[in-house]
Simulated assay, not measured.
Amino acid sequence: MAVLPLVVLFLLFQIFVLGLPRRDVRNILTSTALAAVGLFFFLLGVAIGFIPFGRAVGAALGAVSQKWLLLPAGLILGFVTTWGEPAVRILANQVDEASNGSIHRSLVLYAICIGVSVSCALGLLRIGYEIPLLNLLVPGYMLILVIMWFSNQNFVAIAVDAGGVATGPLANTFLLALALGVSSSMDKQDPVIHGLGFVAVVTLAPIASVMTLGLLLRLKESRQASSKGAKQC
C-alpha cells in the first residue's frame, strides 16, 4: 500500500514522459519490489521487537531515582541510534558527492550524531524533570536563527535537511518508544504531554550542530584569509 502509488506514478511518467528502455523499467520495478519487501520486514521487526525494546529501556531509565543519569543515557543512545540511521548516511554521502569531496561525509555524519546525542539527552531530562516543551523549542529555534546569519551558507541547507533525516525510521521507532517508556514509568505523568514532542527536540539539535560546524569553518577560513593577507603585506 505504501509503495503502490509510487509505482503507478512511475508508470504514468514512463508512458507519457520518460520512455525509458525496457531493461531500465525492469530494473526499477524489481528494485521497487525489493524495497516493498524490505519495508514489510522492517515494519514487522519494529512491531515485534524494536518498539517494545525501546519502551522497556525507557521504562528502566525512568524508574531510576537519580534523574541526572538520563543525561549520559541520552547522550549514548542518541549517538548510537543516529550512527545506524540509514537516512543520515545517505545525506552524508550526497553532501560529499555534491561538494566533490570538499565537505567530507564523516564530517556531516559526526555533526548530526553529536547533535542528536545532545538533543536526546535534553529530551530525556525534560521528561525526567517535567520541563515544558516550549522551554526547549523556543530558545532552540531562536538560537538557530541567529547562527543561520553567521554560518557558512553551504551548511544552512545541509543543516535543514539534517533535521529531517535525523528523525528517520530507526530514530523515530526507537527514540520515540524510549521517550514514551520513560514517561510512562514516572508517577502522575501523561505520556501524551511528556513523552510525545521528543522527536521535535531531536529534530532541533542536528540543525544547530551542522550550522555551528559551518560557523566554525567560516571562522577558520576568515582567519586563514587574514593571515594570508598579512603575509602578503
Rank of each mutant, 00 (worst) to 15 (best):
Gln189Trp: 02
Gly163Ile: 11
Val64Thr: 05
Val138Ser: 06
Ala208Thr: 09
Val7Glu: 07
Pro72Thr: 11
Thr81Pro: 00
Leu107Phe: 07
Ile76Asp: 03
Leu44Pro: 00
Ser184Glu: 15
Pro132Cys: 10
Ile76Thr: 08
Leu91Ser: 01
Ile114Gln: 02
Leu217Tyr: 06
Leu70Glu: 11
Ile48Thr: 09
Phe53Ile: 12
Ser65Arg: 15
His194Ser: 10
Asn135Thr: 06
Pro169Phe: 15
Asp24Cys: 02
Val182Ser: 02
Cys233Met: 10
Phe40Ser: 06
Tyr129Asn: 07
Leu77Trp: 03
Ser222Arg: 13
Val118His: 03
Val17Met: 07
Leu145Thr: 11
Thr212Phe: 10
Asn172Ala: 10
Ala92Val: 07
Gly78Met: 13
Ile51Ala: 06
Ile131Glu: 03
Ser183Glu: 02
Arg89Val: 07
Leu43Gln: 07
Leu215Glu: 04
Val3Ala: 11
Val156Asp: 12
Ala98Val: 11
Ala225Gly: 01
Gly163Pro: 01
Ser226Cys: 09
Lys67Ile: 08
Ala205Met: 14
Glu221Gly: 11
Gly101Phe: 09
Ile48Glu: 10
Ala87Leu: 14
Pro21Gly: 11
Leu178Phe: 08
Met186Ser: 07
Gly214Gln: 05
Ala47Thr: 02
Pro5Met: 14
Pro132Gln: 14
Ile112Met: 09
Asp96Leu: 05
Ser31Leu: 10
Val95Met: 11
Gln189Leu: 15
Leu213Glu: 01
Gly128Leu: 12
Val7Tyr: 06
Ile193Leu: 15
Leu137Cys: 00
Ile127Asp: 04
Leu39Asp: 02
Ser106Thr: 06
Val8Ser: 09
Ser185Gln: 12
Leu175Ser: 04
Ser184Ile: 05
Ser65Ala: 12
Gln14Asp: 08
His194Pro: 00
Val37Arg: 01
Val182His: 07
Val182Cys: 03
Lys220Arg: 13
Phe53Pro: 00
Ile103Gly: 01
Gly128Ser: 10
Gly140Trp: 04
Phe50Pro: 00
Asn152Gly: 12
Asn154Asp: 13
Gly74Leu: 12
Ala92Asn: 03
Pro52His: 13
Pro86Phe: 14
Arg105Met: 13
Trp68Lys: 05
Phe42Ser: 01
